[in-house]
Design a protein around this nucleic acid. Structure first.
Lengths: 144, 144
DNA sequence: ATCCCCGCTTGTATAATACAAGTATATACT
DNA sequence: AGTATATACTTGTATTATACAAGCGGGGAT
């Protein structure tokens, strides 16, 4: 029982190092990790402001602000001023953004698909579920 | 089938962001991610030189060199010159290093244990196994 | 003895992050 | 209405972890 936690602890530490290395340096596609997630989020849940995104991601507002500026500069999102609140605006996906997101998604999926090519379907499904559950657990723990 | 890969791909992206954030900034214990893994490795597999460690971790030698220097400076490892090869040395754990490693390990395990407190034993075991398998898969893919 | 290889360090660059200070707008309290 | 506080965002600065490139010095092979 405790043993399983020990394994998870170690493997998580290893995983982070490898994933960071993979996604930051020898990156798949041309979007960095954060840009990718930002676009993913906007695509999945619709336009949002910097504040909402930083809350969602548990990142500092300043970090998201810069990421958003970078995305805008590349033409992947556009800024829509909030009609009610003069301070706020929301980030809306552009056509180019959607395109680049989908390309990247595909590249990443292919890459993972290759790694898991000799896994059984059952293993993949369970691994996906447990990963999702773990991510949820992290969120809950962090917000306590 | 493909769907499971999609889920894994997304959850991995989310996981990295959260883990990086957790382990880099609001870090558990007083060892950073890399120092922790370095000590873990030396503890588990015995003394090793910078080259061997960087190979093992798929990190640049320069990165490990700096990490090793930092660990030495803190007194967690000591340098033993290789008696045969004048260029090389190996990093050996000190008492202080072992102590700090164990403290950190415990803190991390507690933290993960808390997150997984409402998981079943079976889930934990399987998750650990699949994580390990995934880490292996990454390694194999990377070295092709 | 020379030339190249290898282990390691150091210099420099980059990415992703945090924290702190600043700007401008919005809201709340007299 | 006027002022004080809170909020959304930007910008400046620092830190951490990484890579790549250049260099130093010892090894080994011809």
């Amino acid at each position: 029982m405790n043993n399983a936690v020990d394994v998870i602890e170690l493997e998580m530490a290893i995983l982070v190092r490898r994933l960071v290395s993979m996604t930051t340096y020898k990156k798949t596609g041309n979007l960095d990790r954060s840009a990718y997630l930002l676009l993913y989020q906007i695509d999945s849940y619709g336009s949002a402001g910097v504040k909402a995104l930083s809350d969602e991601f548990h990142l500092d507002i300043s970090t998201v602000s810069r990421q958003a500026a970078a995305l805008e500069q590349k033409g992947y999102v556009r800024r829509i001023p909030d009609p009610i609140d003069g301070r706020a605006y929301s980030l809306e996906m552009t056509e180019a953004g959607l395109e680049v997101l989908n390309e990247n998604k595909k590249a990443r999926q292919d890459s993972i698909g290759k790694m898991l090519s000799n896994w059984s379907d059952g293993e993949r499904v369970i691994f996906g579920e447990l990963l999702r559950k773990f991510n949820t657990a992290i969120l809950e723990e962090a917000s306590e």
